[in-house]
Amino acid sequence: MKKSSPDIKSNKGGKEWFYTEIVKKHFFEPYKFLKDKEKFKADGEGAVGSPACGDMMKFWIKVDKKVGKIIDCRWRTFGCASAIASTSALAEMITEKGGIKIEKALKIRPQDIMKRLGGLPDIKVHCSVLGDQALRAAIENYKQSLKL
């Protein structure tokens, strides 16, 4: 049979992928996730979500204690493409300029991660909310460790 293409074009730009190109990049080439054999000495760690909800994230941070700056991080995520991509994007946001001050890191909101990803489908927004929560949990954990 002759191959035919539809006359009616999609007004969604005709892209084949459900997510933006940025999401795609972070999904297929996740940035700074904790590899199996990697040794990462974390100063704080946090976990949010649950496998029951379909999304579960762990976040580890390394802190320059003298200046109160997060200088490196690692993460792991069980979840859909946007959950993986949003954690990867967050790792990029934190580390891209040689690190981020804790006060500034605490101000990262889900919307910031969304913006970085070039947007997410509405139904996926809950996924990216977890990334900043995981980071905050890791910071909290770090602060607690200082008190000990």
């Binding site: 459900f18 297929f28 493409a81 959950a83 996926k124």
Partner: peptide, 22 residues
Amino acid sequence: EGEAMVLYLDSKGIYASTGSAC
């Protein structure tokens, strides 16, 4: 997670489905 698997398979030209909520 199922959706991640489905999208990865999609990138390799395999079209599947999942019972995952995502």
